[in-house]
């Protein structure tokens, strides 16, 4: 039993890490195309080997433990961030067969793990004992918790509609009509929340290069940085998958006659679509100001959602 579960878990983690690797490539290529430049295209066919060389390079870089840092915390923070970015996948039904662990409280589990993600960032910013890292972590945490609120309310609303917190039931409810159609205002707010929650442009203030250099992970080099980076992109993929599950019908086929194709394929296609939108947004929109960001999160989203409910 345990071995079977272990195999299942590995069958989720390994493709996820590969997906993260290729997502970095896709992002750079797509943004390159949108900004009329090339992007990485030398290694492998059209740059396909680029992510692996990047990973190798990060592995061979010199890890630095700043002398003023709180060292145990400093070392555990990236591991914790990595862990929380992976753990939420346990409950998501990534194929028609269901999830690794099909929890009745699946959506609650997702929200809980999402909240835990804040701790890794908080630890990293605090343990680094550096001003930039600390400011970056303050911003990051305030932003993430602010947008978790509307997120929780959105998930709650879908739970009311589906009358369940189980992901599988949620997907089955959307068999005939995707939640995006009746609940489209929620969908719009959800996308904004996803962008803010994953610290992506136009809400990437925590890592605003021009003022904070990189935010909470400024003191990290080598694999410490790589783990944060992987976690960030894994969170991005996670949010896209959750978007597909909540609003785009998850593993269900868009038309009944197309349902002979496997559910995992449909989920992947929908997730890719959402991911592409994330990259598109990053290439298109300028960065928000921090006070505007917080005001948007607390007033506009919260009020709109309470009315929706």
């Amino acid at each position: 039993m345990t071995v079977y579960v272990l195999v299942q878990v590995l069958a989720t983690v390994v493709p996820l890490l590969l997906a993260v690797a290729f997502l970095t490539l896709v992002e750079r290529r797509v943004m390159g195309a949108m900004q009329r430049r090339q992007g990485p295209n030398v290694w492998g066919f059209g740059g396909l080997l680029q992510p692996f060389f990047d990973g190798l390079k990060l592995l061979l870089k010199e890890p630095i433990l700043p002398s003023t840092a709180d060292q145990p915390l400093f070392m555990w923070a990236p591991v914790l961030t990595f862990l929380t970015s992976q753990a939420a996948w346990a409950a998501l039904p990534t194929s028609s067969a269901g999830a690794v662990s099909d929890l009745n409280l699946g959506t609650m589990y997702f929200l809980a793990i999402g909240s835990l993600g804040v701790y890794g960032i908080l630890l990293a910013g605090w343990a680094s004992n550096s001003k930039y890292a600390f400011l970056g972590c303050c911003r990051s945490v305030a932003q993430m918790i602010s947008y978790e609120l509307p997120m929780g309310l959105i998930v709650l609303t879908t739970a009311v509609v589906a009358n369940s917190l189980n992901w599988t039931v949620l997907v089955e409810t959307q068999q005939w009509v995707w939640f995006l159609l009746p609940l489209w205002p929620l969908g719009v707010i959800w996308m904004i929340c996803c962008l803010a929650e994953t610290n992506r442009a136009p809400f990437d203030l925590p890592e605003a290069e021009a003022e904070l250099v990189a935010g909470y992970n400024v003191e990290y080099s080598s694999m410490g940085f790589a783990l944060f980076f992987i976690a960030e992109y894994a969170n991005l993929i996670l949010m896209s998958t959750v978007t597909s599950l909540l609003f785009l019908g998850g593993t269900g086929a868009p038309l009944a006659i197309l349902s002979f194709l496997p559910g995992a394929l449909w989920l992947s296609l929908k997730t890719l679509l959402v991911l592409f939108m994330f990259v598109w947004v990053r290439a298109t929109l300028p960065r928000y100001r921090y006070d505007q960001l917080m005001t948007l999160g607390w007033t506009v989203c919260a009020v709109a959602l309470l009315f929706m409910l």
């Binding site: 983690v13 990595f82 346990a90 662990s101 410490g224």
Partner: peptide, 29 residues
């Protein structure tokens, strides 16, 4: 059904620690 969650936590932690440790071994300081 929570077994999957526990195994997931363990796998992710081990993976993270191993990656961090590998970097300290592979690089010159």
């Amino acid at each position: 059904e929570y077994l999957g969650v526990i195994v997931y936590f363990m796998v992710a932690t081990v993976l993270g620690v191993v990656m961090f440790w590998a970097a300290t071994q592979c690089s010159s300081q």
